[in-house]
Each structure stands twice: as structure tokens, then as C-alpha cells.
Deep mutational scan, measured.
Amino acid sequence: QLNEKPLPEGWEMRFTVDGIPYFVDHNRRTTTYIDPRTGKSALDNGPQIAYVRD
């Protein structure tokens, strides 16, 4: 279940091809599976993935 609260300024939620949510921090140009609103991860110790700018 996804959090309904808005993401912090400069953050975006995207999904992997497998449908796993991850979070893009455009301020720091990093990505993470940890939801910045809750501190909880969509994966157990998930790796960071490459930042992609559209």
C-alpha cells in the first residue's frame, strides 16, 4: 500500500519494470527504494539504481 502523503519538494515516485516503487531525489540526483515520507523500503536492503533524467 502506497503512502498518500505528498512527497517532499524535488522528489518523485517511479516504478521499475517489475512494478516496484522507487523514489527519485532530483535535488541530490539520487534514487532510493526508501520512501522519504516513512523511512520504509520497498525492498529489503535494495540497491540504489541509476539516476535517469528525462
Results as ranks from 00 to 15, higher is better:
residue 17 V to W: 05
residue 45 N to M: 10
residue 25 D to N: 15
residue 39 G to Q: 13
residue 40 K to W: 09
residue 9 E to A: 09
residue 2 L to T: 09
residue 12 E to L: 02
residue 7 L to N: 02
residue 44 D to A: 05
residue 44 D to G: 10
residue 17 V to P: 12
residue 40 K to V: 14
residue 53 R to H: 13
residue 25 D to L: 01
residue 41 S to E: 12
residue 37 R to N: 09
residue 37 R to P: 01
residue 38 T to R: 08
residue 46 G to M: 11
residue 48 Q to R: 10
residue 11 W to H: 03
residue 41 S to R: 08
residue 44 D to I: 08
residue 23 F to I: 00
residue 5 K to W: 08
residue 43 L to T: 11
residue 26 H to Q: 12
residue 23 F to A: 02
residue 48 Q to A: 15
residue 49 I to A: 15
residue 49 I to D: 12
residue 16 T to F: 02
residue 27 N to M: 14
residue 49 I to S: 14
residue 33 Y to L: 03
residue 38 T to H: 10
residue 6 P to N: 15
residue 25 D to S: 05
residue 43 L to P: 14
residue 9 E to M: 06
residue 10 G to E: 04
residue 30 T to P: 00
residue 10 G to S: 04
residue 1 Q to A: 07
residue 19 G to W: 03
residue 40 K to T: 15
residue 50 A to M: 08
residue 47 P to A: 06
residue 54 D to K: 09
residue 16 T to P: 02
residue 2 L to R: 02
residue 1 Q to F: 04
residue 27 N to S: 11
residue 49 I to E: 15
residue 13 M to Y: 06
residue 48 Q to Y: 10
residue 23 F to L: 01
residue 41 S to W: 12
residue 47 P to K: 14
residue 19 G to Y: 14
residue 1 Q to C: 15
residue 14 R to K: 12
residue 48 Q to H: 03
residue 18 D to A: 12
residue 6 P to Q: 15
residue 15 F to A: 13
residue 47 P to W: 03
residue 43 L to E: 10
residue 45 N to C: 08
residue 28 R to H: 15
residue 31 T to N: 05
residue 28 R to A: 15
residue 53 R to P: 11
residue 20 I to A: 13
residue 54 D to H: 07
residue 3 N to E: 08
residue 42 A to P: 12
residue 49 I to Y: 04
residue 13 M to R: 09
residue 47 P to L: 07
residue 7 L to M: 13
residue 41 S to G: 13
residue 45 N to D: 15
residue 6 P to R: 11
residue 28 R to Q: 13
residue 39 G to C: 10
residue 36 P to W: 00
residue 14 R to M: 09
residue 36 P to E: 00
residue 47 P to V: 08
residue 2 L to C: 04
residue 4 E to C: 08
residue 5 K to F: 05
residue 28 R to D: 05
residue 1 Q to S: 03
residue 24 V to M: 10
residue 24 V to N: 01
residue 51 Y to S: 14
residue 51 Y to Q: 15
residue 53 R to W: 06
residue 20 I to H: 11
residue 15 F to N: 09
residue 32 T to S: 05
residue 19 G to P: 00
residue 4 E to Q: 05
residue 22 Y to C: 01
residue 35 D to H: 03
residue 31 T to R: 02
residue 44 D to N: 06
residue 53 R to A: 13
residue 2 L to W: 03
residue 39 G to R: 08
residue 42 A to M: 11
residue 50 A to W: 07
residue 43 L to K: 13
residue 22 Y to W: 07
residue 14 R to C: 09
residue 43 L to M: 15
residue 45 N to S: 14
residue 31 T to E: 04
residue 13 M to H: 05
residue 21 P to V: 10
residue 15 F to P: 03
residue 24 V to Q: 04
residue 42 A to S: 13
residue 5 K to Q: 13
residue 5 K to I: 12
residue 4 E to D: 13
residue 50 A to F: 09
residue 27 N to W: 05
residue 26 H to P: 14
residue 19 G to V: 00
residue 1 Q to E: 10
residue 33 Y to N: 05
residue 10 G to A: 05
residue 10 G to H: 01
residue 54 D to S: 08
residue 19 G to L: 06
residue 22 Y to N: 00
residue 53 R to K: 09
residue 24 V to C: 06
residue 45 N to R: 10
residue 15 F to S: 12
residue 3 N to M: 05
residue 27 N to D: 14
residue 34 I to F: 10
residue 53 R to V: 09
residue 47 P to R: 12
residue 5 K to Y: 08
residue 15 F to C: 09
residue 50 A to S: 14
residue 26 H to C: 02
residue 52 V to I: 10
residue 30 T to Y: 15
residue 51 Y to H: 15
residue 17 V to M: 13
residue 24 V to K: 03
residue 15 F to G: 07
residue 46 G to I: 04
residue 46 G to D: 13
residue 29 R to L: 08
residue 7 L to E: 02
residue 35 D to A: 01
residue 8 P to T: 01
residue 29 R to Y: 06
residue 19 G to K: 13
residue 52 V to K: 12
residue 23 F to M: 01
residue 26 H to R: 07
residue 38 T to F: 04
residue 22 Y to T: 02
residue 17 V to F: 04
residue 25 D to Q: 01
residue 40 K to R: 12
residue 17 V to Y: 09
residue 40 K to F: 10
residue 5 K to D: 12
residue 5 K to C: 14
residue 46 G to S: 14
residue 50 A to P: 14
residue 45 N to T: 12
residue 9 E to T: 11
residue 29 R to C: 12
residue 6 P to V: 12
residue 50 A to C: 07
residue 46 G to W: 05
residue 5 K to V: 11
residue 53 R to Q: 10
residue 53 R to G: 14
residue 2 L to S: 10
residue 41 S to F: 11
residue 24 V to F: 05
residue 29 R to N: 10
residue 51 Y to R: 15
residue 49 I to P: 15
residue 4 E to V: 06
residue 14 R to A: 09
residue 27 N to Y: 08
residue 37 R to K: 02
residue 38 T to E: 14
residue 1 Q to I: 15
residue 20 I to E: 15
residue 42 A to Y: 14
residue 23 F to T: 00
residue 5 K to A: 11
residue 1 Q to H: 09
residue 12 E to W: 01
residue 51 Y to A: 14
residue 22 Y to H: 07
residue 41 S to Y: 07
residue 39 G to W: 08
residue 21 P to K: 12
residue 38 T to Y: 05
residue 47 P to T: 14
residue 29 R to D: 07
residue 52 V to C: 13
residue 15 F to R: 13
residue 6 P to I: 12
residue 42 A to D: 11
residue 38 T to N: 13
residue 3 N to Q: 06
residue 33 Y to Q: 04
residue 13 M to V: 08
residue 2 L to Y: 14
residue 39 G to S: 12
residue 44 D to L: 09
residue 3 N to K: 07
residue 52 V to S: 14
residue 45 N to V: 12
residue 28 R to T: 14
residue 20 I to W: 04
residue 31 T to W: 02
residue 21 P to A: 12
residue 30 T to L: 15
residue 19 G to S: 09
residue 37 R to F: 02
residue 14 R to H: 07
residue 35 D to E: 03
residue 36 P to F: 00
residue 48 Q to V: 09
residue 16 T to S: 09
residue 29 R to E: 09
residue 35 D to Y: 00
residue 19 G to I: 03
residue 21 P to L: 10
residue 41 S to A: 12
residue 37 R to E: 02
residue 36 P to D: 00
residue 11 W to C: 06
residue 23 F to W: 09
residue 47 P to Y: 03
residue 5 K to G: 11
residue 8 P to R: 02
residue 8 P to M: 03
residue 40 K to N: 13
